[in-house]
Design a protein around this nucleic acid. Sequence first.
DNA 1: GTGAACAATCTTGTATGCAGAAATGATTTG
DNA 2: CAAATCATTTCTGCATACAAGATTGTTCAC
Lengths: 218, 218
Amino acid sequence: MAGDITHAISNRVFELLRAKIVTGELRPNEPLIETDLAQLLDVSRTPIRESLQRLAAIGLIVPRRRGWAVREYTPAEVLGKFEVRIALEGFAAFLAAQRGTDDQLRRCKRIHEDRLTVEPGDEDRRISTNRDFHAAIIDAAGNEQLKEAIYETGRFYLNRPVVRSSTREEMALAHAEHAAIVDALLARDSQRAEREMRAHIRRTFLMFQRLEPGVHLA
Amino acid sequence: MAGDITHAISNRVFELLRAKIVTGELRPNEPLIETDLAQLLDVSRTPIRESLQRLAAIGLIVPRRRGWAVREYTPAEVLGKFEVRIALEGFAAFLAAQRGTDDQLRRCKRIHEDRLTVEPGDEDRRISTNRDFHAAIIDAAGNEQLKEAIYETGRFYLNRPVVRSSTREEMALAHAEHAAIVDALLARDSQRAEREMRAHIRRTFLMFQRLEPGVHLA
DNA sequence: GTGAACAATCTTGTATGCAGAAATGATTTG
DNA sequence: CAAATCATTTCTGCATACAAGATTGTTCAC
């Protein structure tokens, strides 16, 4: 969905509705009444309906017998989404180790080292450098479709859980895992890079999800 | 996008347009004129516009400065899409070996063995048993989100290339690869199952794609 | 008081109207 | 004859209209 040039109102509506869903302002199973939404956002039903189509396409709403409702995700389904991300981003690490340029991999390392200097309290930089690190690896994978697919999984969960501030221990753990990934990348060990990336994502997920018993990540 | 209950016309329009794109009837870069499409399918612009949103969401059309155009995929981009599928379906094999039930894995084996009896000329059964085999593994992975994601990649390319009839040698090769996957699954060797599945998909892709030099699958 | 039949009200699905931006093409000027 | 300017046409983006089906509420029979 890159390069949206037109659809000014429609895009704004889409993002607003998406935000209201992932933040929980529109609750799961809540029926979405077009006229209400139109009034709420002060537009006509047309851009509302177009946005609903897009929200359905990314799985945030589901069709009801009549109209749409916010999709309820069970913990198992959230886990499922995360496993998709594990598959995709792990493979990105695999590809990056295999065919990323030396420059690209050195850039991953540089971002990682830069991140080591972030103060524990500086949440903004902690988050942004983490995003940059993952983005650098995905870039190094050199597959735009894969990048889009990963980005798409992000649209689902990114804003969903509260972004908790992280402890010093948690940061040290993340640093160690990032270091392991960087090491594997520079060694061009694609399998190890994939393994480390999977473990890293799995752990960060487990950090802030309380799973039902019996549901486990691979 | 399961369980579409309403949107009767809209859904029909979506499928018709999708078919016209993947079959090439609507050519890449061809501008999509809403009024023309509406006239062609004998509906108003409204369901056309809603379908265009959905087509954009699955990557078949892209926004232009004005309106939409059929997205042109370069060979490298098609390759990119396939790599996404490799990542997802490989991971499905991984999960299947790890947590599929014995019943589910035996079913994979049974479908595989059943497929061995297919006559070389029987294209319908060759295709359907292959689909069943892959579906059985994806089912055994026990992740509905992953299944949906794999299915989604299919919406893009399935109808695209001509489904070539396959030689006796090609079938023997596919059988051998399927056997290797089944073997790894029953041995509960998840890493090997993933590796074999990746190799299998990679090879089937290479079979009917002529790649530009310099572009290689991982 | 409970349940069925029916009426009134919502809400959607589709069609159409309208203003403005973009593309097209004609006309003028150097 | 080429390029630029301006008028015309086309097409989109958003708003609104309308009918059919779904939902809700009410009345009436038992």
